[in-house]
Design a protein around this nucleic acid. Structure first.
Lengths: 161, 161
DNA sequence: GGCGACTGTTATAGAGCATTACAATCGGCC
DNA sequence: GGCCGATTGTAATGCTCTATAACAGTCGCC
């Protein structure tokens, strides 16, 4: 259980994409891609605010949740889930291990792959993170009623295939 | 009209976020933020495919469209629209100028700020880009019917405030 | 038993962005 | 009319995230 905590997290996106009044947005207002981007930046900022001080990012959060729900997952699969290369998945796993959130265990049936597992501490930290993130996601979606929220989720999943 | 073309564009996100069968996604499937992220990565890949060879990225495209629709815009405002710092807006403007797509013109009424304008070549290039991006955005949204597409756009804008 | 596919690892490189500091200029105020 | 805070573009620097490529060990299959 190493405890280095080297790099205090600084988010990549600090500024919201704000609507400049009197400006002509031309075709941008007709593009799903642009609307998605703006909505996602807003969500990212909410995520960042909700997890302040936890040194966490969306990919890190996703990785922790996936490891928690799929103990013993390999790093290659983890990378595939996140849409990043194996080398990146490894750095991510290193990061989680350095904070004592996960540990690598050898697999008896496959000596190539490690299995990644949450530690007891990891379990607690991830549970707390999930609570905060879920609450913020719900709060942020508060401008939508329940039906709209469900519909948005459905359409997004349909779009992502 | 400088023509350097230094950095052949390589996108940040190459891999789609694919659904790994048999994996437990836990709370991720309930989070708007995660659904947004997946949909946006899919859209980014479509964007990238549609503009292959044009050395363009979403921020660059946005900047060009905004400059085209708002001739003489200053770099600070441009940065605000994109949600990046002034220094980044300047690098972006440099990039556009190096390719002969825009030019900076002095403003008579304010000697601090430059006004950014599309060149004739820029007009043509941006028009072609817009056609491609719009077509791909529509194609990508083809899994939705017209009502769903409109509804998605509405909900995203509502969410982004 | 050999060979292609796969795993984790390491090193290197680059894109994109923020931060900070700076000079020039504007605008308002007394 | 002159000062002072705010704003604009610029330049230098650094950091984070990610890809790419190369490597060794291991698996599985013919």
């Amino acid at each position: 259980m190493t405890r280095k905590l080297p790099s205090p997290y600084r988010p990549r996106v600090l500024a919201p994409i704000l609507r400049v009044p009197g400006l002509d947005y031309d075709v941008l207002d007709e593009l799903l891609g642009y609307a998605l981007r703006r909505a996602q930046v807003g969500m990212f900022l909410a995520f960042h605010a909700a997890t302040r001080g936890m040194d966490i990012t969306p990919p890190r959060f996703t990785a922790l949740v996936i490891v928690g729900a799929n103990p013993g997952i390999g790093q290659s699969v983890l990378g595939k889930v996140l849409g990043i290369a194996r080398s990146g998945a490894m750095l991510l796993t290193n990061w989680m291990e350095e904070r004592g959130l996960v540990e690598r265990r050898r697999r008896p049936q496959d000596a190539r792959a490690w299995g990644v597992h949450l530690t007891p501490r990891g379990e607690r930290v991830v549970a707390a993170m999930k609570r905060r993130v879920i609450a913020e996601d719900r709060r942020r979606a508060g401008v939508l009623d329940a039906r709209e929220r469900r519909e948005l989720l459905r359409l997004l999943n349909k779009l992502a295939r």
